[in-house]
């Protein structure tokens, strides 16, 4: 028998999760239910987070955005301000599965499922997003990259869950983008993903850049050297080549049914370059 809880408050949710070691939070269920049906996880309790009012919807926060962790990916598309500020994050979340899947799936679920190939995660890392973590000990704000620990494992403690995804205020002349490589055109898992967020000054010189990669290491990576290779340049081809070198150097993928080490490494560099160009045009269009 599985206990199913629908708490109305963050505190109740945390208490229910803390009470049962095998309990699992449920957002969209597009990972959790599939894993339960296949027998991969057998939780004794499920704690549905969707009935907690503060966990649904998008609101302004600190000049940026606070996205309730139970907000489905397609709902992000309805928020014009969010789409204008962080198009890369919104498009990453809306590459997941199909429309039917995205009507349920959430970015927080994508993050806490801790797949190295999760699509929204590199985009969130590039955007310097944070997770508001709620637990028995109260709240803490954690950089996105610090949530996943290993494939299928997070750094969340017993009773902790993600209540919000927080995106910072967007620089007036910033832009972001996310691209992934899949063999098909949808309903597939990223062989490689690359998210880029950058800021340009009025002359087109890059003043800040973050490059993040998915599916090339046990967790999504922020590649600081890749961002650094872009900062101070006009994003000329040579700068992008140096960025691509840093990306390749950071890759530590596995050979598996979804791709070879060589292919993943090569694609990471190519996608990072292509995403940089898209982010650049978005930043330019904004400035």
């Amino acid at each position: 028998m599985i206990a199913f809880h629908s708490p109305q408050t963050l505190e109740d949710a945390s208490a229910l999760l803390a009470a049962e070691p095998s309990a699992r939070p449920l957002s969209g269920g597009t990972d959790l239910l599939v894993q339960m049906r296949s027998g991969r996880v057998e939780p004794a309790a499920i704690v549905d987070l969707k009935q907690i009012p503060s966990m649904r919807g998008i609101r302004a926060h600190d000049g940026g955005f606070a996205i309730g962790a139970a907000t489905p990916c397609t709902a992000l598309l309805d928020d014009a301000a969010l789409c204008a500020a962080w198009p890369g994050v919104v498009e990453a979340a809306n590459l997941i599965g199909s429309v039917q899947v995205r009507n349920r799936a959430t970015m927080a679920g994508n993050l806490c499922n801790a797949s190295p190939a999760a699509d929204s995660v590199p985009a969130l890392i590039a955007a310097d997003a944070r997770a508001l973590v709620v637990g028995p000990a109260g709240e803490r704000e954690v950089p996105i990259a610090d949530i996943p620990a290993a494939p299928g494992k997070t750094n969340l403690a017993q009773g902790e869950f993600v209540a919000e995804i927080r995106l910072p205020a967007k620089s007036a002349s910033g832009g972001d983008a996310y691209l992934r490589s899949i063999p098909r055109t949808e309903m597939d898992i990223a062989v490689v993903g690359a998210g880029v967020s950058l800021v340009l000054d009025s002359s087109g010189t890059c003043t800040a850049a973050r490059v993040a990669l998915g599916a090339v290491a046990p967790t999504a990576l922020l590649v600081e050297e890749a961002g650094a290779a872009l900062v101070g340049t006009g994003l000329d081809d040579a700068a992008l080549d140096r960025m691509a070198d840093a990306v390749r150097a950071a890759c530590n993928p596995i050979n598996d049914k979804r791709g070879t080490v060589e292919y993943r490494t090569a694609m990471a560099a190519i996608l990072a370059k292509r995403a940089t160009r898209i982010a650049q045009s978005r930043a330019g269009a904004n400035s």
């Binding site: 063999p183 098909r184 055109t185 949808e186 309903m187 898992i189 598996d256």
Partner: peptide
């Protein structure tokens, strides 16, 4: 032609027994 294949691991077990990794075309392909 493009993506379908039975993929086995070194233990002789099928590694892609589902439509996620046994890649039949989807409509948008």
């Amino acid at each position: 032609a493009l993506n379908e294949a039975y993929i086995y691991n070194s233990k002789g077990c099928l590694d892609n027994p589902g439509f996620l990794d046994y890649r039949m075309p989807v409509a948008s392909d």
